[in-house]
Design a protein around this nucleic acid. Structure first.
Length: 348
DNA sequence: GGGATTTGACCGAT
DNA sequence: ATCGGTCAAATCCC
């Protein structure tokens, strides 16, 4: 009875209290973490890592509660049923594209291309994309590429994504997905090889090659962690970022020959993705707070910091399953250090 | 020729 | 006025 009363009384007004409790618990866990012996079992460390990440996740979700309340609640993927909102139907209607687009679900992934072997290629996200624009972004070193689902015309799929090379680590691409796929082909009919969203290479020496000389591509996923951020900082300090004249097209429909190698060498496993919610109101600067365990992080890039939408996960276009198989021939390209998946924010 | 990409122009938001 | 996002004609490639 009293419990039920508490449930009712816990509203947004209690959000600071709840957050404080979580923060306190997190600090306690951190303290516990510092007391762990270097010889402590890795399972304990992993456990603490996951607990900390859960806290960060919870805080991040809580922080966006107000956004959810402010929003129109028209989040594809958030509302059960048709993922297509009225907003999406307006995309081709009255010209209010941008206003509506801001209501679409948005999330980012960081993808590291494999520079080690020269086989460039971002993640195989199982969807087919068509590039429709590229834009130089102010204060950004690299241009941003704009992509739509290949099946936008045929099936009215409104999924889009924006891809931008990280300024801090040129081997990393920030991919922002916007909206959910409503197409059938993208999610079911197209084989992974056909859908590998890579068209061009991202390193200089490959970009300058004629298209027909594209090398084979592999999928390479990087898990965003604070250790990644450390790498980022180091490279920033060195200032050894490379200049790129153009930007790789993370699209695939025309890929036929190039993907044969991928089909034959890659496993059937799905890569694990760690998403970065893009919300400017997530004020938690996780960097340096939970050391190497940070996985859930605020998007640090300048362009993302301007995004003011609440972000939700897309179950269909957002593969979260951990790979079942170990990488075989792609071992050298895969970073398997962070297989623990903490999941994107799901809003209740 | 058809489909994808490139790129300058245009539009809307701030 | 500026900037990010989108359009669409030109171009490229198969």
């Amino acid at each position: 009875m009293s419990e039920k009363t508490n449930e009712i009384m816990l509203g947004l007004d209690h959000k600071p209290l709840i957050m404080n409790e979580i923060i306190q618990a997190r600090e306690l866990v951190k303290e516990l973490q510092t007391q762990l012996n270097p010889t402590s079992s890795s399972s304990r460390k992993v456990l603490i890592t996951r607990i900390l990440s859960s806290f960060e996740n919870s805080l991040s979700m809580l922080d966006r509660v107000k956004l959810e309340k402010k929003s129109t609640m028209e989040w594809p993927g958030h509302v059960s049923g048709s993922p297509v909102s009225d907003c999406e139907s307006d995309l081709y209607g009255d010209g209010s594209r941008k206003r509506c687009r801001k209501k679409l679900a948005r999330w980012t992934q960081k993808v590291r291309v494999c520079e080690q072997t020269g086989l460039e290629g971002p993640l195989d996200d199982r969807y087919s994309w068509r590039k429709y624009g590229q834009k130089d972004i102010i204060d950004a070193k690299y241009p941003r590429g704009y992509y739509k689902c290949t099946f936008q015309k045929t099936q009215g799929c409104s999924a889009m994504k924006q891809v931008q090379r990280s300024e801090l680590d040129s081997s990393i691409f920030n991919i922002t997905y916007i909206g959910n796929h409503s197409c059938v082909e993208g999610s079911e009919l197209v084989s992974p090889g056909q859908c590998s969203p890579i068209k061009q290479e991202s390193s200089n020496h490959i970009i300058n090659q004629p298209r027909e000389k594209k090398s084979a591509e592999v999928t390479f996923i990087s898990f965003q962690t604070s250790s990644y951020r450390q790498v980022v900082k180091e490279e920033e300090d060195f200032g050894n970022l490379r200049e790129l004249d153009s930007f790789p097209s993370f699209s695939s429909p025309s890929l036929k020959v190039e993907n044969r190698l991928l089909e034959t060498t890659s496993t059937n496993s799905s890569p694990t993705y760690i998403s970065t919610p893009t919300t400017a109101e997530s004020n938690y600067n996780l960097e340096g707070r939970s050391g190497e365990q940070n996985i859930f992080q605020n998007t640090a890039d300048s362009h993302d910091s301007k995004i003011d939408e609440m972000t939700v996960s897309s179950p269909e276009a957002h593969p979260i399953s951990v790979a079942n198989d170990s990488p075989t021939t792609l071992d050298s390209c895969w970073n398997w250090d962070f297989l623990v998946h903490y999941g994107p924010p799901h809003f209740l």
